[in-house]
Nucleic acid binder design. Structure first.
Lengths: 241, 241
DNA sequence: GTGCAATGGCTCAGGGCTGATCCTTTGGAG
DNA sequence: CTCCAAAGGATCAGCCCTGAGCCATTGCAC
């Protein structure tokens, strides 16, 4: 019978985890934390954003209000107005929501993360990229490398943005979505541990290797490089949690 | 600005695609089509299922009603009653909803599918499986192999169930969920093309290779075998669509 | 300077969904 | 035979959310 097996849990999982308001808040924060909306940038206009998110303008506005109250965005009225990401983002007002994740939860995230990100790197390398795509990748790579020391939050955003860019150049929208989601979860885990500058330099080295492999169309190398990269993060997280 | 880039589309994608009723119907059908709920089996009681799906009993009942009207399930009252999957399932009353998918949509699904399923096979092989898990895998493998000729729908369900079992033994709930979802999409594509018996035998061969690699803990071999397997399906689909 | 288009701010009727409660049916336990 | 627990069947008040509309503000184009 379809009792409590994992497959049953997967199919009969909740249809709606949060309500529309909460989901919308999460999305806005996700956009900011993944660097998809960078500090100072303008979000799409409310009417458009509401349509894209599939929620009513009322609900979106409530969510924006909440995110604005927390200091992440700021709204300006009038033509050429809009909702802008704050230049100085709040520094992790995350009060360790819930206890540290259980070992199983951690492994769950890390497993999916490895599958998705290594798969994305391989898939990206297997395609023949357009000049625009190649430039996009290179741009994100230098973007991460250029972050000055101490700017940990900015580093994390650009790091996320590079990983997202790799998923983007696979040309698979659903893979990109999946990577964005798992990346959000990984970031939440990373926020709980200190960021060591030696790790950053090592990461940048690995980023370069990964992007080079993708750009040269070497799929196995891209996978291997990404595997090593996410393996490092996994070891770090397992150590601290 | 966060304009129309893929990453932006991923983060600002709709929060709620369908309404609760439609989502619930989809889940019930997914359970049946993936073989998670086999013909003749009883679904969880309404009160429990509603809780698991995170919808009200009213909504769940409406969904069950719809699925029952379509001939997929049957409800019986009284103690030891319940909602049972029909012994004889309707044969694809799917009237080609929408035109055939565009090339990009097809590639999107196939890309994510390859990433997830090959990654799952590799992850499964990399773990040390418990006796119960090993038996589970073997059972699903023989289950597919035993389907008599002509029972195409049953074959597809058991095939799905095997692929799901591989995801299950990775012990990653979110990977299992992701595989279940992509498998549902793949099945929809497969329903549009004829099932050739030569392909079935070839598939069974590949299934055996995959499971053997997983059981012997050979992660690279498991990935390679799954890669080849999903590659075959991909070629088939590209040819027909 | 004036007009105006684009944007955020606000309100309200109504539909969808929930959560609670009670009813009805059924078949095994005693 | 009777009881009753477990399951489906049904109803209703009320909240969440939508969709539509209108208002207020702003700064460029002319």
């Amino acid at each position: 019978m379809p009792g409590r097996l994992p497959a049953s849990a997967a199919v009969f999982r909740p249809v709606r985890t949060r309500n529309a308001f909460e989901e919308t808040v999460e999305r806005l924060l996700q956009a900011i934390r993944l660097g998809v909306a960078a500090p100072g940038e303008r979000l799409p206009a409310e009417r458009e954003l509401a349509a894209r998110l599939g929620v009513s303008r009322v609900t979106l506005r409530e969510a924006i209000r909440a995110v604005a109250d927390a200091g992440y965005v700021e709204s300006r009225r009038g033509r050429y107005g809009g909702t802008f990401v704050a230049e100085d983002l709040p520094s992790l007002p995350r009060p360790r929501r819930g206890a540290t994740p259980t070992g199983a939860e951690l492994e769950d995230v890390l497993t999916l993360r490895r599958v998705l990100e290594s798969g994305a790197a391989e898939s990206a390398a297997a395609r023949s990229l357009s000049p625009a795509e190649r430039q996009h990748l290179r741009g994100r790579l230098t973007g991460v490398a250029e972050v000055p020391r101490g700017e940990e939050a900015e580093y994390r955003r650009r790091d996320s943005r590079l990983h997202l860019a790799i998923a983007e150049v696979t040309a698979s929208a659903s893979l990109t979505t999946a990577v964005a989601d798992i990346r959000t979860k990984v970031n939440e885990l990373l926020d709980a541990i200190p960021l060591i500058s030696a790790n950053i330099e090592h990461s940048n080295e690995q980023h370069r290797t990964i992007v080079e492999a993708i750009l040269s169309g070497d799929a196995p190398a891209a996978r291997a490089a990404m595997d090593e990269h996410v393996g490092g993060t996994a070891a770090l997280l397992r150590g601290f949690l």
